[in-house]
Design a protein around this nucleic acid. Sequence first.
DNA 1: GCGTAGTACTGCGCTATGCGTAGTACTATC
DNA 2: GATAGTACTACGCATAGCGCAGTACTACGC
Lengths: 107, 107
Amino acid sequence: MDTSQLLKGVLDLAVLAALRDEDGYGYEVLRRLRQAGLDEVGDASVYGTLRRLFRAGVLTSYVVPSEEGPHRKYYSLNDTGRTKLEESVRTWKDFTDTMGQLLKGAA
Amino acid sequence: MDTSQLLKGVLDLAVLAALRDEDGYGYEVLRRLRQAGLDEVGDASVYGTLRRLFRAGVLTSYVVPSEEGPHRKYYSLNDTGRTKLEESVRTWKDFTDTMGQLLKGAA
DNA sequence: GCGTAGTACTGCGCTATGCGTAGTACTATC
DNA sequence: GATAGTACTACGCATAGCGCAGTACTACGC
């Protein structure tokens, strides 16, 4: 089973969760996710997801110049984003419960 | 969040699990999955997954004529399939654990 | 001063896979 | 003979994660 396929649809949720308590820029979100255990997630996937979520109107964005490298594009959850996060968490939990039922008794 | 995206990669696992205890044909597997709670899964997705798993060599297949409709193509887990099922279950559990960590404290 | 490494982001094209739809074919029922 | 349910196949689409190349800036070592 390929982990990259499992991420489909879930990366949105993971990124939203990573921004829940604190704003963050792409590279940092990537580090947060990898540290949380999603060590195989690609950088382009995270940047892409951030852009997609931004276009979808659930994130706001602001650029901060950095003194130790290139500028950083910070992202922040807005109200729509927080609502979407809650909804997505529920959908995810329902889904994993269903799968748990199906796998009951398996290995 | 879209349920159909969540299924990516997981449908393999669901189908293998549905065939764990008993052989089954496509239409029946579809019913088992829907009954288990995956009520939005499309029929073409299940047939496609069965064909893919068959090509991958984890399922064997035999055709049984039916007296109450068209013929039925039964699928059966072979040893490779059972191994893959166990592996996939582990991958899935690890993945959901990781996500659980990430979502800890969320809604 | 130049190459390498780390940071930070963008854009392009590929691929896997679930889904919608149409089509085939058989049985049963009205 | 038309419709509905069963059972499967085939075609093409859309989504989204990923690999890779490219840009740009800082810092360190030679």
